[in-house]
Design a protein around this nucleic acid. Sequence first.
DNA 1: TATCTGACGATAG
DNA 2: CCTATCGCCAGAT
Length: 92
Amino acid sequence: MTRTFEDAVVEIVDSIPSGETSTYGEVAEEAGFPGAARAVGNIMRTVPGLPWWRVITTTGRLVPGLETEHTQRLRSEGVLVKNGRVSMGGNT
DNA sequence: TATCTGACGATAG
DNA sequence: CCTATCGCCAGAT
């Protein structure tokens, strides 16, 4: 089994509970590759079927080019978005 | 094996 | 607040 970064990221991102949000850095760290936030982003766009909208950047920035789509999806999950940004990691 | 890419992260201006 | 640059890493070609 080619258990690679991709596989790990897929499972982790897919494990993010609805209404919550995580960051690329967090996902990368959980995957076992801290610092590989960039690689995470690539996988998010490479592997379909992933709740990529639950993953944001550490700065609270949403996915570039899909900010509108991203915001709508988060709001649909119950995540409050403020001015194109996510209200913290979905936790108070 | 080498080079390029990118939905990041942090710092500097 | 925004833009630019450097550093980081795995994947794709």
